[in-house]
Write a protein that binds this DNA or RNA. Structure first.
Length: 429
RNA sequence: GGGGAGAUACUCAAGCGGCCAACGAGGGCGGACUGUAAAUCCGCUGAUUACAUCUUCGCAGGUUCGAAUCCUGCUCUCCCCA
């Protein structure tokens, strides 16, 4: 039976800016047979974040080109800790947290791939399943014997750490990850490992192991690190990491993250993060350049990602809330939003909870003493006098105002707005 | 070991007896404009009960009606000669 890929994966990834490097022969392999490929995800947190989207997208492309994707949760590798890109030794996570993280990540990954496909259903793996039972002695006899320390020391991830030191634990990481690849090669006929460019060293240790242990040929494909034009780190908002878990980063905040991408980055990101076709993207870019103020690219980008990671309903809600928070609408529209969408939109905002008092809160105390919205009363006062503070979308003008029940929205909230886009929520109980 | 220069607010950097909560620049925050952008312009940027008061200019003392500014000691930094 001859295999014909749905499309040339390498070509596709190339124009999208998702290709950094490949092993020689990878393209030929992908064009002549159905390939099983995998990506590993570290359970360092209880949720994936936007930075993990790239490897997820690689898997999706692999699957839609007709190949078979494996998503590997690093239950074992997480116990050790990948030194790649780290300048110092990290603390080990405790086993319970890791188990919890693995479960969370597994659940998230399940959303993105098709596990019911006939020809090339995705599969989920956890490397703890094969590492958990290997003893240390067996491992160093059967695996360690094939790789020289000299070879391991030559990797950037190790070299960069020789000055400041590195534990044996982290040093051996590449062997563990390398063995994953060898194990999957042997047991799942998995010939391809994908990942970020920082994984190159770990991946090549894997292909080397496969050659020495099984006399086989394996392949690799990496994507570049996602960068922003202004040089700041991708994947962070003012509130910190942008997570895929809606309880850690609300769909509204997630939508906002993509909407606020700069013009230059939007052109780049729409290729990387969406599955829109080439001509669709090209005409979108053209439209955007003609009428940049409409920010069509950002809107499409935010929509696609919001729908991919969350849902259409979440997207609709995010748009509604965005209109209220950033459009020209005022206090009336805020009320008209209704309590439920309001609560969803304010999720992820800096928040303070206060016990309601009958006599009310002098506004300056509320802003600086009862909450940490301002560092001092003086600052809060100046902001009010400068016209930079709104309460529930209504400009505050009187620094001596006392907040009482009448000021609350939906009877329990106070939406404090500092400047244009800094919102804080005060919840009264 | 000898000689010299310096330490000022988030950073750089003026000030050298009262007019100093301390010039100016950068950064940060806010306002106007705009695309929830960039650029530009304007304002704020020690605290407080804001008329006014209080605590700040490496640290500790001293002189003086009055000190970031003068004197003494200490700590630290930089430079030059051995």
């Amino acid at each position: 039976m001859t295999f014909i890929p749905k499309y040339n994966l390498i070509e596709e990834l190339k124009w999208r800016g998702l290709l950094h490097d490949t092993f020689p022969g990878t393209e030929d392999l992908l064009n002549k047979e159905q390939v099983s490929g995998y990506v590993g995800f570290d359970p360092t947190a209880d949720s994936l974040h936007v930075g993990n989207l790239v490897p997820i997208i690689l898997l999706k492309h692999l699957q839609s080109a007709g190949h078979k994707p494996y998503a590997l949760v690093g239950g074992a590798t997480g116990l050790v800790g990948d030194p790649s890109g780290k300048s110092s030794e990290r603390n080990l996570l405790d086993k319970e947290a890791l188990l919890y993280n693995q479960a969370c990540i597994k659940k998230q990954l399940e959303k993105f791939l098709d596990f019911g496909a006939k020809e090339n259903a995705a599969e989920m793996l956890n490397n703890y399943d094969w590492f958990g039972t290997i003893g240390f002695l067996d491992f160093i006899r059967e695996v360690g014997k094939h790789i020289s320390v000299n070879y391991m020391m030559a990797k950037d991830s190790v070299k960069n750490r020789l000055e400041n030191g590195m534990s044996f634990t982290e040093f051996s990481y590449q062997l563990i990850q390398g063995y994953d690849f060898a194990h999957l090669y042997k047991n799942k006929n998995c010939k391809l490992q994908m990942g970020g460019s920082d994984q190159w060293g770990n991946i090549t240790t894997g292909t080397e192991l496969i050659r020495r242990m099984h006399g086989g040929e394996a392949y690799a494909l990496t994507s570049p690190l996602v960068t922003k034009a202004d040089g700041t780190k991708f994947g962070k908002s003012e509130a910190g990491n942008v997570w895929l878990d809606p309880s850690k980063t609300s769909p509204y905040a997630f939508y906002q993250f993509w909407l606020n991408v700069s013009d230059v980055d939007a052109e780049k990101f729409i290729k990387i993060f969406t599955f829109l076709e080439r001509n669709t993207i090209e005409s979108l870019i053209e439209e955007h350049q003609k009428e940049p103020h409409l920010r069509k690219l950002q809107k499409v980008l935010a929509k696609e990602l919001c729908c991919l990671v969350h849902s259409e309903e979440d997207y609709e809600m995010a748009i509604k809330a965005s209109d209220v928070f950033f459009g020209n609408s005022g206090a009336e529209e805020l009320l008209a939003l209704g309590k439920l969408p309001f609560v969803q939109a304010v999720e992820g905002m800096p928040k303070s909870t206060l016990i309601n008092r009958v006599e009310g809160f002098p506004i300056l105390d509320l802003l600086s003493t009862d909450t940490t919205i301002f560092a001092s009363k003086g600052e809060a006062r100046k902001m009010i006098l400068a016209g930079g503070l709104s309460i529930n979308k209504r400009k505050a003008t009187d620094p001596n105002h006392v907040i009482t029940k009448e000021d609350l929205i939906f009877e329990e909230y106070l939406l404090v707005q500092k400047g244009k886009k800094n919102y804080f929520l005060v919840h009264f109980q």
